[in-house]
Design a protein around this nucleic acid. Structure first.
Length: 416
RNA sequence: GCGGCUCUGGUGAAGUGGUUAACACGUCGGAUUGUGGCUCCGAUAUGCGUGGGUUCGAUUCCCACGAGUCGCCCCA
């Protein structure tokens, strides 16, 4: 217990950490390329923000939030996602004041109390992108492109991009009503979950795997028939942009996002080999959220991508490079008489920006030589009584086995 | 939150109701004189996820809990 991390959390060990760093660097590089700037928001927020932002009735809010009272009796929640926080920060810091379109990205850990399985953790990491202040569908396309090109650039294949439109406050209610009517007629044939969804979220029924093959599904109302002109045009324009950018996508009118704030565009990128948790990135437009949180009516689009899942996918495809932790020099000290001498050498090398290491365990020289090899060092710098007496160092090239004795002053040149 | 499966050392694992829990890798040490990669020798779980129970006796049987994993749900 004491030596176990809490359920659904993971240590990122040095070996993995370099992969994370590489991934994070690529994210920053790419976001830069697209003109997005990094924002870092608090790990926790007032619970109210998520209640309003994500919406009560959603799974995330109803059963997955880490919520607690702080010592001042405030209700605090560990962020289950970052969009609401970004919007909050946008409003609080009046980021809308300077530019029409505010383009932000973030990297950070999120928390959801869910049952862990491969690709699903209670603390997990997302990076995401948000573009606030523009309703042009070109921005939707830019966001989707960013996500798509990013995953592609990592070397991932077998990716599928699904897009859909979920309407807006003007037309979604109509669609919703039609769905409710239609499925109520077929309620007897629905699975238990869907009968419950009938009231809460009839859109989700479309996405049900249990009922997917039932006959009445084919004739279920379709969102296309209900869209208002604005939404229809928006969706058509988006498709046009994506086609122009030469991105393959499929329209999946069963794609529904789980969070309340989405309007119009919804999309998801899947990497099938991951199994059950195959969604690697997902997002869409949320034109109503900013107003919901207390700002002016402001259109916005964004997405979030799961970093563990990306790393998992990369691992599955053997796209994670082997570790190379090479250092230049490993100092081998013969006897305690040489230790101080060796330590000084170690420090001097580092001050000259040469990576160096030595064994502090006072082992035999043989053992130290083994350690030198294991460290991946190119040179072993051997110092014993002779070297101390003559102010020299024996430099041994571990690849060629050639060795020579040089004065301390020359060591750094010899090995750089 | 629901269901299935799993849980032996640093790792991969074998194994049994009852004397020292295989084997391999790894790690550490050694093979005379200050030096590696090969070879050889030796060491390395008083312990079999945790806690109960059954039993003369359990790592092996039962139960609970925990963690992992797969699927559902949901999502990144």
């Amino acid at each position: 217990m004491l030596t176990n991390a809490p359920r659904g959390t993971k240590d990122i060990l040095p070996e993995q950490a370099t992969n994370w760093l590489r991934l994070e660097n690529k994210i920053r590089e790419l976001c830069n390329l697209y003109g997005y700037e990094e924002i870092r928001t608090p790990t926790f927020e007032h619970t109210e923000l998520f209640l309003r932002g994500i919406g009560e009735g959603t799974d995330v809010v109803d059963k997955e939030m880490y919520t607690f009272k702080d010592r001042g009796d405030r209700s605090i929640t560990l962020r289950p996602e970052n969009t609401a926080s970004v919007v909050r920060a946008y409003l609080q810091n009046k980021l809308y004041a300077n530019a029409g379109l505010v383009k932000l990205f973030y990297i950070g850990s999120m928390f959801r109390y869910d049952r862990p399985q491969a690709g699903r953790l209670r603390e997990f990491h997302q990076f995401g992108v948000e573009a606030l202040g523009e309703k042009n569908p070109a921005v939707d396309a830019e966001i989707i492109l960013l996500a798509w090109e990013f995953l592609k650039s990592l070397g991932l294949d077998d990716l599928t991009l699904k897009i859909n439109t979920v309407g807006c406050p003007a037309c979604r209610p109509i669609f919703r009503r039609k769905l409710t009517e239609y499925f109520t007629e077929n309620a007897d044939d629905l699975c238990g979950d869907c009968r419950r969804r009938l009231e809460k979220n009839p859109l989700r029924i479309l996405d049900c795997k249990v009922d997917a093959d039932k006959d009445f599904m084919d004739d279920a109302p379709r969102i296309e028939t209900c869209l208002c002109d604005d939404c229809r045009e928006h969706f058509n324009a988006l498709k046009k942009f994506l086609t122009a950018a030469n991105v393959e996508f499929t329209v999946d009118n069963r794609l529904v996002r789980g969070l309340d704030y989405y309007t119009k565009t919804a999309f998801e990128i899947q990497f099938a080999p991951l199994g059950a948790q195959s969604a690697v990135a997902g997002g869409g437009r949320y034109d109503g959220l900013i107003r919901e949180i207390g700002g002016d009516d402001t259109p916005a689009v964004g997405f979030a991508a799961g970093m563990e899942r990306i790393l998992l996918a990369l691992e599955l495809q053997n796209l994670l490079p082997a570790q190379d932790k090479k250092i230049t020099a490993y100092i081998v000290a013969g006897g305690s008489a040489a230790e101080t001498y060796a330590f000084k050498l170690l420090t001097d090398l580092r001050r000259k920006n040469i990576s160096a290491a030595m064994d502090f365990g006072k082992k035999s020289m043989k053992a130290q030589m083994k350690a030198a090899v294991k460290s991946g060092a190119k040179f072993a710098l051997i110092v014993g009584e002779d070297e101390v007496a003559t102010s020299t160092v024996t430099v041994k090239n571990l690849e060629t086995s050639a060795q020579e004795k040089v004065s301390v002053a020359e060591v750094s040149e010899k090995i750089s």
